[in-house]
């Protein structure tokens, strides 16, 4: 092959790659496109997403929408309404896997009519220690009038993270900066980045955080949870809001049509000691504890629908689906209504 032919072929290949890359960007825009996130400067959360950006998810669930002017997934922009209930949660409540109107916050708003307005500042990877670390800033920034909701999917907490949260040394969840952040805005590169992370996760040795598989809560665990909850109690009292922690476990199917209740991966009955300790500490610190287990089980027994998982994932695994958000919204609505009546 002559040198000229090689150059010509390389030019053709370059053009081909550019065209295909452009087509793949178009495809990725609708296939898996969550806006880039950056540090939240008011510290109410670790990060927030680009505001007013289109998002799409077809990798887990099929959903489209856009973030609001505050960079979170809410139906209304920040400032359109006063906030009565502030929702702090993880990627489960971030709700990029469902339509914005199907999220817990949106469904609560519909259930309450004009009485209460719920605003979600949930985002990926936030757990109770992060909520505690960010709570004061969140309460100052969003000024909820009545309630603050904390979504948890695990009652187990990594001791180091809990202690760091209590000592105010918990590191911020990282956000891309500079060129990396700019590259995140290219849809196909973002898809490839996710794919690469999945591949790395596959190669990595799994580590288990949390319990040491004993059914009795350790002193360390109790002290950590007690410390975190005490902070919640103090801050909520200071800002005159009622804290509610709602626990949403996962369900997995058995061949006899029954289901297992899982705390992420661990059967809940194997860590009942931790669970009991968690619940009693909530009571001690005047935090309303809402356990979604019975509601999820009742819904499964009636409809054979699990609260997690989608038509493109394993049943019962992953993030909350629309049904899961609905069940949670209805239970939270009932809890808040009941409290209003008894008050």
């Amino acid at each position: 092959m002559k040198f000229r032919q090689i150059i010509l072929w390389m030019m053709k290949a370059f053009v081909a790659v550019v065209i295909s890359f452009a087509i793949m960007c178009g495809f990725s825009f609708f296939y898996d496109n969550v806006p880039a996130h950056f540090d939240n400067l008011n510290n109410s959360t670790d990060y927030k997403y680009e505001s007013n950006k289109f998002y799409s998810k077809a990798t887990e669930g099929i959903a489209f929408g856009h973030t609001n002017n505050d960079g979170f997934n809410n139906e209304l922009d920040l400032g359109e309404k006063d906030i009565d209930i502030l929702l702090m949660g993880s990627s489960q409540e971030e709700a990029f896997n469902v339509k914005t109107s199907e999220s817990t916050a949106a469904q609560l708003n519909r259930l309450f009519g004009n009485n209460y307005y719920t605003y979600s500042i949930a985002h990926s990877s936030q757990t109770l220690p992060y909520f505690v670390r960010n709570l004061e800033s969140a309460l100052k920034t969003y000024k909820p009038k009545s309630y603050v909701l904390f979504e948890v999917q695990s009652i187990l907490i990594t001791p180091e993270i809990a202690q760091n949260a209590l000592n105010n040394t918990l590191e911020r969840l990282s956000s891309a900066k500079g060129i990396a952040a700019d590259l995140q805005k290219v849809p196909y590169l973002k898809v490839l980045y996710h794919q690469f992370n999945d591949y790395k996760a596959l190669k990595a040795t799994p580590t288990v955080a949390g319990s040491d598989n004993t059914n009795t809560a350790t002193d360390e665990y109790t002290q950590n949870i007690d410390g975190l909850m005490q902070k919640i109690e103090e801050l909520c009292a200071k800002y005159n809001v009622t804290p509610i922690i709602y626990y949403q476990p996962h369900l997995s199917l058995n061949n006899d049509k029954t289901v297992n209740v899982l705390n992420i991966d661990t059967p809940l009955n194997e860590i009942s000691g931790f669970y009991n300790s968690y619940v009693s500490l909530c009571q001690k610190h005047n935090i309303i504890f809402v356990d979604m287990t019975d509601d999820f089980l009742k819904n499964y027994n009636e409809k054979q629908i699990l609260p997690h998982g989608y038509c493109n994932t394993k049943v019962g695994v992953g993030h909350l689906n629309a049904e899961g958000h609905r069940i949670i919204a209805e239970r939270l609505y009932a809890t808040i209504e009941e409290k209003a009546v008894t008050r």
Binding site: K12, A13, V15, A16, S20, I23, V191, L192, Q195, Y199
Partner: peptide, 25 residues
């Protein structure tokens, strides 16, 4: 693969495979 359209379709197929691949064990 000596023509631009052939190269485009082939690279598109490779890119699509990378995007849709499921990484499991």
């Amino acid at each position: 693969l000596d023509k631009t359209w052939g190269l485009t379709l082939f690279s598109l197929f490779i890119m699509l495979t990378a995007a849709l691949a499921y990484f499991s064990s």
